[in-house]
Amino acid sequence: MATDMIALISAGIALLAAGGAWGAVFVNRRNATDTIKTQVNIGARNSRASVVSANRQKWIASIRADVADFIATRQQLLLLAGSGSFQKAGMDALHAEERMLHKHAAMLRARVEMRLNLEKEEDHVSRTPVEVSGS
């Protein structure tokens, strides 16, 4: 009877050890799955951040190009306004060029305004027309 008791205790210990081993397998599998999910999430965030950063740089470059073009157009308008009097035939061409420059300046201003975040107060642009004689 003592031998049967020892065999029974040994079998119980073996079953307990087997159960512990299966538990460790499931815990390790869950940990590996969580680690993989975390790595995928980190990779997705890093990828999104690099795409957003590249798009933001393109956005900034576009605004800079439009602002530079706007300043150049405004300078052309100032030069045109200060060019003095010309013959009647020349004045028609100057007025046509001036209208074209005003139209181009308005389009550039609209492009810049479109790209600004108007939810922020510091991004608001005054709604006055393009001035020719200002500094």
Rank of each mutant, 00 (worst) to 15 (best):
A54R: 15
R56N: 11
R56T: 06
K58F: 11
K58G: 13
K58Q: 15
K58V: 14
W59V: 00
W59H: 15
I60D: 10
A61F: 06
I63L: 12
R64W: 09
R64Y: 08
R64V: 07
F70L: 15
F70K: 02
I71W: 04
A72H: 01
A72F: 06
T73D: 06
T73L: 05
R74Q: 15
Q75I: 06
Q76C: 04
L77P: 00
L77R: 01
L78P: 01
L78Y: 08
L78H: 12
L79P: 01
L80S: 08
L80T: 04
L80Y: 01
L80Q: 03
L80G: 05
A81E: 07
G82L: 04
G82F: 01
S83P: 00
S85H: 03
S85V: 06
F86Y: 06
A89D: 13
G90A: 09
G90R: 03
G90Q: 12
D92I: 15
A93L: 13
L94C: 01
L94G: 00
A96Y: 10
R99L: 12
M100Y: 10
M100F: 11
M100S: 10
M100N: 08
L101N: 05
L101A: 07
K103I: 02
H104E: 10
A105M: 10
M107Y: 04
R111P: 03
V112R: 02
E113R: 11
M114R: 06
M114T: 06
L116K: 04
N117E: 09
N117F: 07
N117Q: 07
E121M: 10
H124Y: 08
R127A: 13
R127V: 06
R127S: 12
T128N: 12
P129W: 08
P129C: 11
P129V: 09
V130L: 09
V130S: 12
E131D: 11
S133P: 01
